[in-house]
């Protein structure tokens, strides 16, 4: 994916702007790539990097954007998802940013993309060896909730003292009768480092295990990069008598009828009407195109959800 082997700047004329290709200067990209190489060499280990100020606030995906900027080449096809959707504000603005400063082709189709930046989801469609996932991570340290001191958490990682992660899971079971952690569910990477897989739902944790794609995780505020290289073991922490389980739903997707994808609940009116739809909008629309229809697919008042046409004035309030 890193197309420019020599660090020679790509002509700024290509972007029609006074910015360097993909916004960051070449020295910064080299620094980030070095951190990425180290992260890939030590799966799950948090590598510090000299995070730069980006033209957007922390919390809007600055870590992921710096990673994307450093690995994007002119031939890449870029996809951005936020909450599983391609058309949410954050996804649209990040996609526009790279269209403008890197002039890369963008797409909403998972299968066409070579670099996919994401906040909350891993696409339902299986990833390939040709793809890189880039995650925007708010809190990279999985031990943070149990141990506030950074000096101590580093030592705990170094010495593999991970007992406290299970204290958190114990507490979940004691309070809720089951492991109630649903996102940022801690995983053991390559049998060595405990890692926080960003705020993806635990539904997506199994997709990380022995995934053919490269997964890069970047935290802008905390200035850490970590990675899951292709075909790496990723095991979700659990107890012998309370094994790891993913979320399940009683219903299928109202639009495409999928029973295997991660569903979002949508409130339809103020009289208890609701439906479940795929959180991965690309997956859902591909399924509908190929003829899979859910129980609510025919309802015209839900067109906005389908992404077919903009909502009419007055919306669909019943």
């Amino acid at each position: 994916m890193i197309a420019q082997e020599n660090a020679a700047p790509v002509s700024t004329a290509a972007t029609g702007e006074e910015y360097n290709f993909a916004y960051l200067d070449e020295q910064t990209k080299r620094m980030v790539r070095r951190a990425v190489l180290k992260a890939v060499a030590i799966p799950g280990y948090q590598v510090p990097f000299a995070g730069r100020e980006m033209p957007m606030p922390y919390g809007w995906g600055t870590g992921g954007i710096q990673l994307s900027a450093s690995i994007l080449g002119p031939d890449d096809v870029f996809k951005v998802i936020d909450q599983g959707a391609d058309d949410t504000t954050n996804a649209v603005s990040i996609r526009k940013f790279f269209e403008r400063v890197a002039d890369v082709e963008t797409t909403e189709r998972t299968s066409e993309a070579t670099v996919i930046q994401t906040r909350h989801r891993i696409p339902e469609e299986p990833l390939t060896e040709e793809q890189i996932m880039v995650y925007q991570v708010p809190i990279p340290e999985p031990l943070r909730w149990m141990e506030a001191r950074e000096t101590e958490t580093r030592k705990m990682h170094a010495l593999e003292e991970y007992g406290v992660m299970h204290v958190k899971l114990y507490e979940d079971i004691a309070r809720h009768g089951r492991i109630a952690t649903n996102y940022m569910y801690p995983v053991m990477v390559n049998g060595r480092y405990v890692m926080s897989p960003s705020p993806i739902p635990k539904f997506d944790n199994p997709k990380l295990d022995r995934s053919p794609a490269l997964h890069l995780l970047g935290a802008g505020r905390e200035k850490r990069i970590y990675a899951v290289p292709p075909y790496t073991d990723v095991k979700s922490l659990d107890f012998e008598d309370h094994p790891f389980e993913v979320e399940t739903w009683d219903e299928c997707c109202g639009l495409c009828g999928s029973e295997t994808s991660y569903l979002d609940e949508v409130i339809l009116d103020d009289a208890g009407g609701r439906m479940f739809v795929c959180s991965d909008t690309d997956y859902c629309s591909r399924r509908r195109e190929s003829g899979h229809l859910g129980p609510m697919a025919a309802r015209e008042d839900l067109d906005e959800l389908k992404g077919d046409r903009p909502a009419q004035e007055g919306g669909h309030n019943g």
Partner: peptide, 17 residues
């Protein structure tokens, strides 16, 4: 309970019961 269990979990106990 979690306080008492912490030392056990830190030496590898992985059975909640």
């Amino acid at each position: 309970g979690a306080n008492i269990g912490e030392r056990l979990m830190s030496i590898g106990a992985r059975h909640y019961g």
